[in-house]
Design a protein around this nucleic acid. Structure first.
Lengths: 340, 340
DNA sequence: GACTGGCACTCGTTACAGTCGAGTGCCAGC
DNA sequence: GCTGGCACTCGACTGTAACGAGTGCCAGTC
């Protein structure tokens, strides 16, 4: 049986009411608060169908209905209009992000902003190294046998690593190394660098080969292998909004999951996805987060995607609002990155 | 009335039992589990006195006793012996920290280690910039009107900032700037740099003064004003161990406080304090954290203190164990920093 | 055929009473 | 000063009853 227009209206009304009141919603309350133009009894019949189809369920026999993950999914896909942001919100976003000094600052402001606007947990991935190019490599002598390698990416990310040299290397030789690695690697995508780094070792004069090999291994680690994705989080306290029942009684698994970078990355999904993505409850791959929903999207200058961001909260969240906010913030941040 | 030896024994027993069982402890259970050598009735009399003096209290008339903040304080100050760490724990610490690659890595490993060993929330402050010296300053041309300033401190911390130049500056001039700032500032305590930076501006040739002034203002910001203290956190999920009653019912205020860097810094206390410090419940200055205890200490190479670290948990925590762990970890990390 | 009003039914919530038992305070006695 | 005994308190638990929100179903209406 397919769902006619009114049944969808009923589902929409249930979702909206439940999200705002946090309580199972009954047929009578529903007709009172929405002009459905029919009686409670009719709504009850519709509800019975919706329940049979798995869109809503009853926590107890004598209670109202609550949307299921499937119900939210239908709501998100077909029943909700994205709420346009209020001018005040737009201004808040602009003002909040405008003063950022550098990448770190942008990311921090963004994540706090998201948490504040959505009242959920916000997650922002730093521009991914894998999608960046090398802007500059700097070698700073710390001692005769130790360098600090500083890599500056075009996305503004800066990574540094210590390099312990096998033999002492005088400053002039360091300058040579610096020149060589920059000539070879600047402008290249980080993911394209491995063969180039290898070539560096092969081409260098034999007496410097050992040093270059050491440097090369650190380079590879920094540029590719380590692939260190960084992530900023904010708004954890928002998890305590509303009742604990939102998370089947315990914040434990969620707080645990949020401490694992690997999990957070999986959560944000493939960076590739430039389109906004909503994962509802069980759709989540991470077991600890089956009672939450995630709204995430990629961001970056222009059409390029360099990282993702999103919010996480109870499945009972304001999807249209959060979707609008995440989308808007991502767009602003993208523009900001484009300007630099 | 002063407390005789036995009353102190009773208090110690109450604290130990309560910490391990998490339940109010009664006179009968007490004599059964500890060889106090007296009858429950006697213990009851002692308890009455301890209660009168404010060291313990009764949650309900018909319940056992629970230590008060004051009781924990007395316990920590006079009744507990620091538990020596087990060899396994010592090994775990060494192994865990040994493989660290750089400062970031050290801090991350440390904070996770502390959280894991104590099963509390762990907080580690990065070596404070205020207590560091300049090891090297690097200026990397990004474009003709934009530099990236990279500051490497002797503690291993690296800070970077963008510098927007008022006029285009050729690479050779950048090299001059680099030489000048390094000559003047390397080896100096960050807190001593402001007059030196000012001198740089005064001494420079008039045609470069504008550029140097811009650079100087960013330098001052990076070295002194911004004074950005960084902090790493781990183990938040440990807050959900034990009952919610440990935190008067809500994690909210605690999670909120833990998201504020400023608050965390206050929490760790003045960096100066090289001695280990225990703050119990109400002794905490931060309102949101009045239901928690904090064990913190400074750390650094040798006798120098460059930052602090600690753990935060319910007042009902294993003080001797946590004190021992925090102290041991801080010592290891200090040694590690000394070696670099 | 779709909608509606009415009605019986379910079941969680709340209130209240009663019992149980851990734990106490106090007191007389050693 | 310590101890055993005893009465008392009060939270936790159990069982019962009343309440009411909400449902499912059915007969009746448009």
């Amino acid at each position: 049986m397919s769902l006619d227009e009114r049944k969808l209206d009923v589902l929409r009304a249930i979702v909206e009411d439940y999200v705002s009141t946090q309580e199972p919603v009954g047929s009578k309350a529903l007709v009172e608060r929405h002009n459905l133009g029919v009686s409670p009894a009719t709504v009850r019949n519709d509800m019975a169908v919706l329940e049979e189809e798995g869109y809503i369920r009853q926590p107890h026999t004598s209670a109202g209905r609550v949307p299921t993950d499937r119900g939210y999914r239908l709501f998100v896909d077909r029943l909700s209009r994205i709420k346009p942001l209020s001018p005040a919100e737009r201004r808040a976003i602009e003002r909040f992000l405008a003063g950022a000094l550098d990448l770190d600052d942008v990311v921090h402001r963004t994540v706090r902003l998201l948490a504040q606007l959505t009242r959920q947990v916000a997650v922002v991935q730093y521009p991914s190294l894998a999608r960046s190019s090398v802007r500059h490599l700097e070698l700073v002598p710390i001692s005769t046998t130790r360098l600090m390698l500083v890599m500056i990416a075009d996305t503004g990310r800066v990574e540094q690593r210590l390099v312990d040299l096998p033999v002492p290397v005088p400053d002039e030789a360091v300058a040579d190394l610096r020149r060589m690695v920059n000539e070879k690697l600047v402008g290249k995508r980080l993911s394209d660098t491995p063969p180039l780094v290898q070539a560096l070792v092969d081409e260098v004069a034999p007496d410097a080969r050992n040093t270059m090999a050491t440097l090369a291994s650190v380079l590879l680690e920094t540029l590719v292998e380590r692939h260190e994705e960084r992530i900023a989080l904010a708004g954890r306290a928002n998890l305590t909004r509303g009742s604990l029942l939102d998370f089947q009684g315990s914040l434990r698994p969620i707080l645990e999951a949020l401490e694992e970078e690997v999990i957070l990355l999986k959560l944000l999904g493939e960076v590739d996805a430039s389109t906004l993505r909503v994962r509802i409850g069980d759709e989540n791959e991470i077991d600890n987060l089956r009672s939450t929903s995630v709204v995430s999207t990629g961001y970056g200058p222009g059409a390029t995607i360099v990282g993702s961001m999103g919010v996480l909260g109870p499945t009972r969240m304001d999807y249209p609002g959060n979707i609008a906010t995440v989308r808007a913030v991502a767009r602003y941040v993208g523009e900001l990155l484009g300007n630099n």
